[in-house]
């Protein structure tokens, strides 16, 4: 497993919750959106175990509904507990990312304007 996918593993639940919060999505759509955001390292299949785990923990709920293109798809949306979990994950991430950025991103500073 590459370092990047190891790092991603811990925060993937949060990313999935954040995408679902914007609007209900089905599996394939979710993987496209994650890739569009720039998380190309998430191999597409990995979202299904994540979705199952989030459903089991009642953070999201999946419902079969007809899609725009016709066939039934399982659309996921956040439950109230999921919304809370997303807030907690976002806060935790912010608390972690600041010091870690300060510590680790020195090498990048010289290359990037920000």
């Amino acid at each position: 497993m590459s370092i990047r996918s190891q790092l991603l593993k811990g925060i993937l639940d949060g990313c999935v919750l954040a995408v679902i919060e914007k609007e209900p999505v089905y599996g394939y759509e979710l993987s496209r959106k994650l890739q569009d955001i720039g998380l190309a390292d998430v191999s597409e299949g990995t979202i299904y175990p994540v979705l199952l785990r989030l459903q089991k923990n009642r953070l999201i709920i999946g419902e079969m509904m007809p899609s725009e293109s016709g066939p039934n798809r399982k659309y996921y949306s956040l439950t109230p507990a999921g919304k809370e979990a997303l807030i907690v994950i976002s806060e935790e991430w912010n608390q972690l990312s600041l010091p870690i950025n300060a510590l680790l991103s020195k090498g990048v500073d010289s290359n990037e304007s920000k």
Binding site: Y48, L51, M64, P71
Partner: peptide, 17 residues
């Protein structure tokens, strides 16, 4: 029920891919 739902999602995903 849950097994068949996730199997269908995976199949749909595979067909799109």
């Amino acid at each position: 029920q849950q097994s068949e739902e996730v199997l269908m999602e995976m199949l749909d995903h595979l067909l799109e891919g």
